[in-house]
């Protein structure tokens, strides 16, 4: 993976996955940066991880059931709707979806 080449189409695909509309200059500069970063992180190849289980979190987890009750939230609907750039009639306004 160390010698993997990141092509322009790869950057455009990642930008699409990331919901970013990159400019042409950004495609170029991010392409170079990502190539460098991927080269660095690829050194993990050297590490022997045979028979090693993955770790995804370091919290000593235990499930906790909550009571089945309605809890008053800190912020009400009005305060939350007021955070949006555009809202009316208790709804958030966006441009056309389809």
């Amino acid at each position: 993976m160390v010698d993997m080449e990141i092509k322009r189409e790869d950057i455009l695909h990642l930008a699409d996955l990331s919901d970013l509309s990159l400019t042409d200059e950004e495609v170029e500069s991010l392409g170079k940066d990502l190539q460098d970063i991927i080269k660095y992180i690829s050194q993990l190849d050297e590490l022997d991880t045979k028979n090693v289980e993955p770790t995804y979190q370091v919290f000593e987890m235990e499930n906790v059931w909550r009571n089945d009750e309605v809890v008053e939230q800190e912020a009400d609907r009005e305060a939350l709707l007021a955070l949006s750039e555009k809202s009316r009639d208790n709804q958030i306004e966006v441009p056309k979806v389809l």
């Binding site: 990642l14 990331s18 919901d19 400019t23 950004e26 992180i41 966006v94």
Partner: peptide, 20 residues
């Protein structure tokens, strides 16, 4: 709206990390 907001709103390092 998503793509423009995110591209204008994030700094270059945010974009690098999201894409990586």
């Amino acid at each position: 709206l998503y793509e423009n907001t995110r591209n204008e709103g994030f700094m270059p390092e945010n974009k690098r990390r999201i894409m990586i």
